[in-house]
Design a protein around this nucleic acid. Structure first.
Lengths: 211, 211, 211, 211
DNA sequence: AGGTAACCGAGACGGTACGTCGCGTCTTCGC
DNA sequence: GCGAAGACGCGACGTACCGTCTCGGTTACCT
């Protein structure tokens, strides 16, 4: 192993505790103030840290909040509930539970909004938040295939297209339900949604577009 | 008919041209600067209007942008393309076309993000943007029913639940595809999506939960 | 008799009551708010008058306040107390009494300050406020001369110089005492001041500079 | 001795150069614009300083101008011209010279006007501007006493009363001559004034009121 | 064991935008 | 045509954060 400091250097190393304190303070501030009223000076104060220390690690509000929110999604995992439908329901419920937390709600949508004009930010969001979720879709399909619930892998290009579609439908529906319609994505809704999604995928599968 | 000015009728009336100029300037600024760099002072200048005039009509950036973006959605209408699937594809494409415009992208997501902490704002978004869209879903279902593509109206409560689900799935998927995945919701994607959605709805329909 | 409207004109004549109401409202506002916080909109409201009406009669805050304060000095008159010293004491006390009123204090000094960069304003102050006071000095000297307390009139140029000096000394001392030292110009102070002034004038009179 | 920074010693220290630049810019703006058109934003710009820096040091226009004008009076000193009359003439001429400068004229009167409704401001004016001048009167009397031009010190209470009266007469007359009458307090006027004042004081001295 | 370089807190700095207030002008309606 | 009501363009206000920059002082690594 090696030291964390990038290029084995002299001088005092950065405090590891500060990073955690800053991210926690960011989430706390998101809960209490929301995205638009969150200020970096306030986050620094909450974390017991100087503004300088914060700016040494993050270049601005967007990047900081992405990282703070990303940690919330680390707890997402694919439960093994025995069937594809049940697995999907499980993960959708987890996703909905995260979006129900106030620090995720405004923070996530705000950085997504910002990312429409900032490619680096969108890439950061994709890498920290979106791709890990997409991996769950892939993992779920693989598990279903071993169970025999899905046919063997078709050609890879079609797979990618299908996975992307599934992901947009799942994430999009939950986000829209939670944030725009402002209704809870509870078990009943998730059951309805999962049924439509699964039936749609299996029924549409043999179609000519190779789904 | 009657006079438009509701109650107090004295004094110089508000300029109607100013409203239009301000909303147009807001959209222009959204295109050029994006949400976060848009300032009300700049919008006022672009509109050839004093800041006070703007503040007399809108209480802040959020409300202004909601109204500016809402006008973009006024052009949405349900085309009659002859079949339910084609109608859906048509309206989804229109929706996608609007979301492809930069003044809608960042503006819409940003106000949605803000609305997570501002109930009045969420209600404004719902009334000006969301509900008109939802009406299209209702209209489309009614038309399909006269065509015989859908069974006659089941009980009203289930209808509401289904319409809400459809709406969250349609709007959510398009938004997520466009803004998060940052891929175009083009004809091919819309065709795939519509197939899955329609198959899912018809296949799931006879289920015990009354869908 | 005839109408007040200057050049016998058509249309509704200006309300004479409005002028008085505006000046009274100005003094009231001076008392409550002071010069710097006095606003013309507020004066108009207090007077039950529209801003337009006010601006039709006065061109701005300075001119309005000069007129409002000038009315306070109309009550100044030269009492006949039997001797020059007593006459002076009397008029100085009256002057001090006016300066003790809050509507005079801040209003007067403020317009004087403004007049340092506005010749028209200074002329207006001189005509409405200063010259009437100076006339009292002339009147007092004439009366003293008939009493035999002063020698007959020397050459007119020297008179003007002396009157100006007396006036600057009297008005200046009272103003400074009242506003800068912030002590009351009461009877005792006025007696002391008058003694020094009169002794100075009579003792200095035979001097070579013709006083 | 000890460190200058009183208590909190951490953080970047305030720039001493900024204070001087701001006061100089204030005087320059007073000359060019006068009190009423002087804006703190403009002063900051002239000083090459941010508005916040200015507000960190002064709470508003009044306080700033008092300090800016006070520095003008620092150059006042009592010349030794050999006699009491000559000394007085000298210091009055200095005082008049300062009041002849445009940065003093409008600035000084305006803050005095404001001070009629702001006790803290009046105290600030007294401490920075008035009291130093009054000290000159005391110094002049002491020097005259060593010369034998004045009798030895009478009782202290009467002294205070006399000094206050002298001061109000001197400062008041010069201010009134300069600002209200708008005539120069030149050597001739100062000679006349000094003669009246001195004769008045000496002639009145033996009076019963203890002067 | 000492030197030194990067870290840390605190907080002042030059900026930019905020949302409000007052100005003096204008536009409308009613008397 | 006058007067009330009030919207208008304008410009300054005083505040809040931004992201940067000194400060003095503290570690941990590397001789």
């Amino acid at each position: 192993m090696q030291s964390r400091t990038p290029a084995g250097r002299t001088g005092r190393p950065r405090s590891a505790a500060a990073d955690a304190a800053i991210l926690a303070a960011t989430r706390q501030a998101l809960v209490e103030l929301g995205w638009s009223k969150l200020t970096l000076g306030d986050v620094a104060t909450r974390a017991g840290v100087a503004k300088t220390t914060l700016y040494r690690r993050w270049s601005g509000k967007n990047e900081l909040v992405v990282d703070a929110v990303a940690e919330l999604f680390d707890e997402l995992e694919l439960p093994d509930r025995g069937s594809l439908a049940a697995d999907i329901e499980g993960v959708v419920l987890q996703f909905a539970a995260i979006l129900a937390r106030p620090e995720a709600r405004s923070g996530l949508m705000a950085v997504v909004a910002e990312s429409t004009r900032d490619d680096a930010l969108r890439e950061r969001i994709r890498a920290s938040i979106v791709d890990p979720q997409k991996d769950l879709v892939l993992e779920g399909r693989a598990r279903a295939r071993t169970r025999g619930e899905l046919p063997p892998e078709p050609d890879p290009l079609a797979v990618s297209r299908t996975v992307d579609l599934i992901f947009d439908m799942v994430a999009g529906a939950v986000v829209h339900r939670t944030l725009v319609s402002a209704e809870p994505a509870d078990e009943e809704w998730v059951r309805d949604f999962t049924r439509v999604l699964l039936h749609g995928l299996t029924a549409a599968a043999p179609g000519p577009s190779g789904m």
